[in-house]
Design a binder for these strands. Sequence first.
DNA 1: GTTATCGGACCTTCAAACTG
DNA 2: AGTTTGAAGGTCCGATAACA
Length: 268
Amino acid sequence: MASPDDKSLDGDDPPDSPSSNALEPAMTMQSVGYSMHMYPFPSHMLPQQQLPRSKRRQVKNACTNCQKACKKCDDARPCLRCVKYGVSEECIDSQRKERKKGVKRGPYKKRDGKDRAGSSVDQADVTSQDLAVSNSGPPPGSGSPPLVAPFMPIPGYFAQYPPAHLMKPMENGLYPQYLPVSQHMQLSSHGGGPEAEPGGYPPPHQYYPAFVPFGPPPVYPFISRHDGQVPQNYMIFPMHPKVGGLNDLTSEGQGWDEEAEEGSDKAS
DNA sequence: GTTATCGGACCTTCAAACTG
DNA sequence: AGTTTGAAGGTCCGATAACA
Ligand SMILES: [Zn+2]
Ligand SMILES: [Zn+2]
C-alpha cells in the first residue's frame, strides 16, 4: 500500500512529496505544534550511516477521521486533513479508552547506570557514543536509531518550507526566508530518491536558512477555518498547485523535533 | 497517475513498583 | 512524599493494493 495519500490528499507530506498543495507543508509540520528537527547540512554532507533523528511528535488526540485512516492529525479542530477533505464537521476527537487499573506488574529491574548488565544495553550508551559519530554503527533503521541527535535544532530554521523558487516575494508579497540549496549542493536524487533514508526517517532537508535582506517582516496568511479559528502555527505558502521544479526538493513531511517536553500537562 | 487501506514502528501516558 | 519502570494504549509512517 503505497502511501500516495501521504503525498496527496491524506497529505502527510512524506519526505518524497514535493508538497503538491499549499496546505501540505504548512499543515503537517507545524500543525501538531512542534517544530521540525532539521539538519544543518544536506544528507550527503552528513555521516550517511547515522543520520540522527529526533523523536516523532504526535498529537494528543487524533480526530476520528485521521485515526481511521491512520494518518497524521493535528491539534486544531477541524484538523487540516479534515478540512482538506471537506469533512470539517466530522472532525471530532476520538474517544480514548481509560487505562485499566489494578494490573499487577511484578518487580522492576533497576537500570540506573548500574545493574543494566545483561538487560538493555541499547539505551544506556546512546548519549556518548552516538554523539560521537562513528562509522561503525549499524545502519540506521536496522536497529534502534540513536535517540539523541548530534545536532541542535537551529531556532527559526524550518525546512518544511517550500522552495524559495516557489515563493515569489514580489508576486505574492511574501518573503521567503529559506532558500533552496544551490544546485550543486542538492541531494542528487541518485538511486534511492528523496527518501532514501534507510531508517525510513526524514531525510535531511535541502533548505538552508537565509537572511532576507530585503522587505519588511513576512506576513504569512493563515489558513482560515470555517469556524473562524486560525490554526496556530499554520502558514500557507503560495505556490504552484504542482511542484516539480527543482527535481525533487522534497518538502519533508514529518514532525520531528526534540522540542522541550511540553510540560507534561497532567499533574501527577 | 491517484487514493485507500492498514501493519507495525514509534510515541505518550500513567499506575505499579520502588526509594528516601 | 517523590521517582522510576514499563506496558497499555495511542499516533501515524510508509508499504502495498486498488483504482482512474
Ligand atoms: Zn485529524
Ligand atoms: Zn479531523
